[in-house]
């Protein structure tokens, strides 16, 4: 996550000091991605070093106020007009876990899937509860509600993917069963076809 760009974008709104920046950031995004103040000040000094922001002047309580520079404004404009890179998918622990679960012998994959589905569903219920409370139309509240929507859609996608995995594994297991029964019951499909066409029943065969 680009803390640098988020802070710059906030500074474009108006000059602010560190604590203020953190508060503004969290008002828009909830505490989904908590920022500590240390992180804010480290970022601010880097922005200053790179000429994107300038610290100077203090308010009555002695907070150093930061303001954006022209180069900073250009940087923010570029950020907003550039899509977020998707070249390298972030490491997805769940996908990795499932990939291993289906290959390592002795793992009950169905249980792995269901446990995850329950956990993700519970998170989804929490997000939805938060959404129900966030009904205001103020800009910052709308922003927070959109962030919640993003979490909702991501959790939903995860549940859908788990449903999909389950369906595919079931189909694969069913196909394997069919293959195995062909191998073990010693009945060729030709014989079975013959029996079906002659209407011979299981009872007929046992009587014989």
């Amino acid at each position: 996550m680009s803390v640098k760009h988020a802070l710059l974008a906030l500074l474009e709104q108006e000059p602010m000091y560190g604590y203020q920046l953190r508060a503004e950031f969290e008002q828009r995004t909830g505490t989904t991605w908590p920022l500590n103040v240390g992180q804010v000040y480290t970022t601010l000094s880097r922005l200053e070093r790179d000429g994107l922001a300038q610290g100077g002047g203090e308010d009555t309580e002695g907070h150093v106020i930061y303001r954006i520079t022209d180069a900073g404004r250009d940087e923010v404009a570029t950020w907003f007009t550039t899509p977020v890179a998707r070249t390298q998918p972030p490491r997805d622990e769940l996908a990795i876990k499932l990939a291993l679960a289906v290959t390592v012998p002795g793992v009950d994959v169905a249980t792995v899937i269901q446990q995850q589905r329950s956990a993700t569903m519970a998170a989804l219920q929490d997000y939805t509860r938060l959404k129900r409370q966030a009904t205001g139309t103020a800009r910052a509240e709308l922003a927070w509600s959109l962030v919640l929507d993003s979490l909702v859609f991501a959790a939903e996608a995860e549940v859908r993917w788990l449903d999909h995995c389950e369906a595919r594994l079931r189909r694969a297991a069913a196909e394997l069963d069919v293959q195995n029964s062909r191998l073990t019951d010693g009945t060729s499909s030709v014989k079975r076809e013959f029996r079906r066409s002659t209407g011979e029943t299981h009872a007929d065969r046992t009587r014989r």
Binding site: Q114, R117, S118, T120, M121, L124, Q125, Y127, T128, R132, V152, F153, A155, E156, V159, R160
Partner: peptide
């Protein structure tokens, strides 16, 4: 899932049985 999330409880049904 997005709709089920509005509920207080979510019951998972598979093959005619409540699994979770």
């Amino acid at each position: 899932a997005r709709h089920a999330a509005w509920a207080d409880r979510v019951v998972f049904l598979r093959d005619g049985v409540v699994v979770d």
